[in-house]
C-alpha cells in the first residue's frame, strides 16, 4: 500500500515541491537543535542570542539578510532557530494527541456499548474544561518551558480527532467488508487497526496538517503569557516582539516570520492533501 502510494505521490509535482520544502524545514530544525545543544553543552551564549544594541532595528542588508530585531540580533538566524521549536511543538504534540485520539476513537466506534460510553464521557470531560486553563494547570505541575507546552497542548487536543475517528469507525464497521473480515476469522484488533484504520487515514493526515499551525499558534500565545519557551528564539516570541514595532515601520521581522509560518503550513497542508489522495486507490485511475 505504501509503495503504491509513493509511486503515485511521485507523479504529483506540487507534492514533490512541498516535500522538498518540508525536508528543508526539517533540516533547519535538526540544524537548529544541534546548534542549541552545542551551545548549551559548552555553556556559551549563541550568536543569535547576543545583543548588540548599536545594531538594533537594521533593515535587511547584505550583512543581515532579514534585518535585525530590537536587541540587534540577526532575524534570519533566529528564524532558523525558531523552526526547531515550531517543529517540536507541532510534532510532539501530535505524537501525543493523535495516538490517544485515534486509539480511543477506534475502540469506542468499533465496540460501542460500555466502551463507547466511557470514551464519550472521557472526552466530554476534557472538552468541557477550558483548554487554556488546563494547559496552565499542567504548566504549574511540570514547570515552565516546553514540556508544559507539549503536555498541555497534546492532552487537550486529542478530543477533536477522537470524535472524528469514532464517527468514521462507526460508519465503517457496518460495512460488509468488515463482516467479511470477521468471517475470515480475523480478530477485532486486527480488523480495527489493519483493515478499518487505513480507510480513515485521510482523517488523521488532514488533522495532522491542520494541527501544525494550531500548535504553533498556541505556542505563540503561551510564550506571550510567559509560560512557554524561555531561552530559545521561537516564532511565537518573535511575532510577539515584532508586533509592537510593526507600526513604527519595522516590517522585516514580522514579514519574514509570518512568511516562514505560511510556507511551513502551506507545505504541510498541500503535502497532506496529496498524500491522502495518493493513499486512496479509488482516486488514481
Amino acid at each position: 500500500m505504501w509503495g503504491d502510494a509513493w509511486r503515485r505521490l511521485r507523479k504529483n509535482r506540487v507534492a514533490m515541491l512541498c516535500l522538498a520544502l518540508v525536508a528543508l524545514f526539517t533540516l533547519m530544525a535538526v540544524y537548529g537543535e544541534l546548534v542549541y545543544r552545542y551551545h548549551d553543552f559548552k555553556d556559551i551564549t549563541p550568536s543569535y542570542q547576543k545583543t548588540h544594541l548599536d545594531l538594533a532595528f537594521q533593515p535587511p542588508s547584505s550583512k543581515h539578510w532579514m534585518g535585525t530585531d530590537g536587541l540587534g540580533r540577526d532575524v534570519m538566524s533566529r528564524l532558523v532557530q525558531g523552526v526547531t521549536i515550531a517543529y517540536k511543538v507541532g510534532i510532539i504534540t501530535s505524537l501525543i494527541a493523535i495516538p490517544i485520539g485515534v486509539f480511543f476513537g477506534c475502540i469506542a466506534g468499533f465496540f460501542g456499548g460500555k466502551v463507547d460510553d466511557f470514551v464519550v464521557w472521557l472526552y466530554s470531560t476534557f472538552a468541557s474544561m477550558p483548554g487554556l486553563l488546563f494547559i496552565l494547570a499542567i504548566a504549574m505541575v511540570v514547570g515552565k518551558g516546553l514540556l508544559g507546552i507539549y503536555l498541555g497542548i497534546g492532552l487537550t487536543t486529542w478530543v477533536g480527532i477522537c470524535r472524528l475517528v469514532r464517527g468514521e469507525v462507526i460508519k465503517h464497521k457496518s460495512q460488509t467488508y468488515v463482516q467479511a473480515a470477521q468471517a475470515l476469522g480475523l480478530g477485532s484488533g486486527r480488523i480495527i487497526f489493519k483493515h478499518i484504520l487505513p480507510n480513515i487515514s485521510h482523517v488523521i493526515i488532514v488533522t495532522f496538517t491542520l494541527r501544525f499551525p494550531a500548535a504553533v499558534g498556541t505556542e505563540v500565545f503561551l510564550s506571550f503569557l510567559g509560560i512557554g519557551v524561555q531561552d530559545q528564539p521561537s516564532w511565537g516570541l518573535m511575532i510577539n516582539s515584532a508586533r509592537m514595532r510593526l507600526w513604527q515601520g519595522m516590517w522585516w521581522e514580522m514579514t519574514f516570520v509570518t512568511l516562514a509560518v505560511f510556507l511551513l503550513v502551506l507545505a504541510f497542508n498541500l503535502l497532506g492533501d496529496a498524500l491522502r489522495d495518493a493513499l486512496d486507490p479509488r482516486l488514481n485511475d
Binding site: 500500500m1 460488509t176 467488508y177 467479511a180 470477521q182 468471517a183 475470515l184 480478530g187
Partner: peptide, 29 residues
Amino acid sequence: ELRKIRGSQISYIFQEPMVSFNPVFTIGW
C-alpha cells in the same frame, strides 16, 4: 475458538461482492 473455525473450516460468500472487499487494499493482499 470461533475465530479459528471461521474462514478455515466454515467460510462465507456474501451477497454483494462490490462492498465485500476492503477498498484500499489489493485483492491479493
